[in-house]
Design a protein around this nucleic acid. Structure first.
Lengths: 248, 248
DNA sequence: TGTACATCAGTGAACGCGCGTTCACTGATGTAC
DNA sequence: TGTACATCAGTGAACGCGCGTTCACTGATGTAC
């Protein structure tokens, strides 16, 4: 009975094995990167850990770079998913709450997945340049989430974009228009500018905390992060009163 | 006459050659890193470019890691020097101007020395962990410059630290007390917190611009950076009017 | 000023290593009749 | 249900490569008398 289903619906044993192997490879690859930093990824080492011949991996990835690209995309997607999940823990009407939530989730995800974070935002793996056409859209998803929340906040009057001085129009890159078109057509680029400014500030803190020198300077990075986010939100024109009531 | 000076003062031919060789090695090393990313540094390749035997390099650096550490320290120092030089183009009384200046210089330096920037703030080179005792102080210098300016601004009443909500006391790491002791003893940690928050925001933008996705999103990153800095300065409690008069 | 010795820079061959990738192959899993 | 064939996963040996590091050495540069 169970085996009478057409193969389109019920995947064959081979298909299932293949999927399992694919995730095994990627899991081990991520592990290697997290332990040895970028460039520490070795196909042979993965094969060794799996217990297979090195050449067997070429049934799953055409070559070294292909594996890396797959890891990048997975990482972007995982981060975006984490943000979206965090966003949805808050009401649609609580814009400040949503922004706050994605910021917390971003840090959590980064701390819990250092390797992936490094892969995406750190120095590129030697000799590897992520193919922009593949990796770009995945990267855009993350910013899109942030942008969408801010647009909602401004529309609801909870955030005042005029508090900052981002130029009203600035030359956009290739990806931004696509991004804007997807989330909110006819969006004033100023909002995008503010969001990017804010978002890079968030990212900057995380970079400093994860790669860098921050841990040597401050022990309680958690608290400092909250203050950081608050400052950023003030810069975006979120209502100070709302923020204060939330924090205390 | 020239050769009659004691060897303590006039370095021997050997000494001068040695210095030249040292800088040659480091220059080529930096070049390699900038071309191939972290992990792309190869002693053999350097020897090849210099036109010497690989083993000759061991007269100058005990091993691979030693060379990397030297490069790190140089990079930190170069960045700090650039900041200090920029700071000193402004009057001692123009605190906002000084902060603005070091932010501009920071970006310039980062863009002009991507390899060094990546070495310090990017993902670590595989298998290499910078010895904190060597590298820490150099890293501290940079933050010290920023901190010093902010302390001056607050003392002069140009910046109001109470505008933000950084916790008044937070657990400090190992390095911060040393840093504080050097630049300004008995400094309220709140000011340090604000400075760190601000400084990581600056760094975050640069990380995003240099490593990352920002270029795909925005073409005129220059303008956006100015807005970014302005927002950060507002968050630090700098006087909005002063900022506006400067920008226009 | 000239000689004897110590220091140091650079040579070149060799070490053992791990890497990505190819290739002809065996054997298992699926498919069509 | 059973057979014949096609597809695919994995094997194992081999390729050429570049790497960091060691070692005994030669020759140049400095130093002391």
């Amino acid at each position: 009975m169970t085996s009478s289903l057409p193969s389109d619906i019920r995947p064959t044993r081979r298909d299932r094995n293949r999927q399992a192997m694919l995730t095994d490879i990627k899991t081990l690859a991520r592990q290697q990167l997290s332990e040895g930093g970028p460039g520490a990824l070795s196909l042979r080492a993965i094969a060794r850990q799996i217990g297979t011949a090195p050449s067997a991996l070429y049934r799953y990835f055409a070559n070294y770079d292909d594996l890396l690209s797959a890891l990048c995309i997975d990482a972007y997607d995982a981060a975006a998913d984490a943000l979206i999940a965090a966003r949805d823990t808050q009401t649609i009407y609580d814009h400040a709450g949503r922004w706050w939530a994605i910021c917390q989730a971003y840090r959590r995800w980064a701390l819990d997945n250092t390797a992936d974070f490094a892969l995406i935002f750190g120095t590129p793996v030697p000799g590897y340049q992520a193919p922009a056409n593949v990796t770009g859209p995945a990267a855009g998803r993350i910013v899109a989430v942030a942008l969408q929340i801010y647009v909602g906040a401004v529309a609801a009057g909870v955030a005042d974009p005029n508090e900052t001085q981002v130029p009203e129009s600035f030359a956009a890159g290739e990806l931004l228009p696509i991004l804007l078109g997807e989330t909110a057509p006819n969006l004033p680029p100023q909002l995008a500018g503010i969001t990017l400014t804010a978002w890079t500030s968030v990212l900057g803190y995380l970079t400093a905390e994860i790669f860098g020198s921050l841990n040597q300077l401050v022990a309680d990075t958690e608290t400092l992060y909250q203050a950081h986010i608050r400052t950023i939100m003030l810069g975006m024109g979120f209502d100070p009163l709302t923020l204060d009531s939330r924090n205390s």
